[in-house]
């Protein structure tokens, strides 16, 4: 299979997975001999972690794009607000009242410009994409942690979540039972 030469990320991804696979295969025999029993799974970690990190690289690039746009929106708004303040500042006298008036104009202008930005669709869309990419990266991090936890014979995030969910459902059942017992006790006493 050939990789498109115009797609540097595709090349990087394939090269990383290819060499990780190769190294894993090349080292699997000696590792199998030296790592006895359940500890054998440690040798497969590297391959899984590399695959996660390789995928994460693409997400980091996308995250950075949204982050750049986020700061661009903030800095453009800042510049526009400051320009308007500067234009108005020339009319303000240089005395105590003037200082207070300048402060008021500065705060009101910046507040208006930034509220306008935060209220806009372009900000909402970009910000939510930025958060979404950050979550993708967190998912990768969680996956890497899960690989390590599994080989250390510890419960993974998914397994812990399952326990929490089970506990929540049990608590609910107990609460319902308690409440129906209470009701029947109340009815009996009446």
């Amino acid at each position: 299979m050939q990789t498109d030469s115009n797609d540097p990320y595709g090349y990087y991804k394939k090269a990383a997975v290819f060499w990780t696979d190769m190294i894993t295969m090349m080292s699997s025999k000696p590792t199998a001999l030296s790592a006895v029993g359940p500890l054998r799974n440690l040798s497969t970690n590297m391959k899984k972690i590399t695959a996660e990190l390789t995928e994460a690289n693409k997400e980091i690039v996308e995250f950075n794009n949204f982050l750049i746009e986020y700061y661009k929106q903030l800095s453009e708004t800042w510049t526009n607000a400051q320009n308007e303040v500067t234009a108005k500042a020339t009319e303000i006298p240089q005395n105590e009242e003037g200082t207070e008036a300048y402060k008021r104009i500065w705060i009101d202008n910046f507040e208006n410009y930034f509220t306008g930005l935060f209220d806009s669709e372009k900000f909402s869309k970009n910000y939510n994409k930025l958060i979404s990419k950050e979550l993708d990266l967190m998912k990768r991090w969680n996956a890497v942690m899960d690989i390590m936890l599994k080989s250390a014979n510890m419960p993974t995030k998914q397994e812990i979540d399952e326990i929490y969910e089970e506990l929540h459902s049990l608590k609910k059942k107990i609460s319902k039972l308690e409440s129906s017992t209470k009701k029947s006790e109340k009815n009996d006493s009446e």
Binding site: S124, N128, I131, S132, L135
Partner: peptide, 18 residues
Amino acid sequence: VVSNLTKSFDVDKFVDTI
């Protein structure tokens, strides 16, 4: 402005991850 942010917020992904 908080309500503006919530419009396209992927709350399922947020809660599943965090």
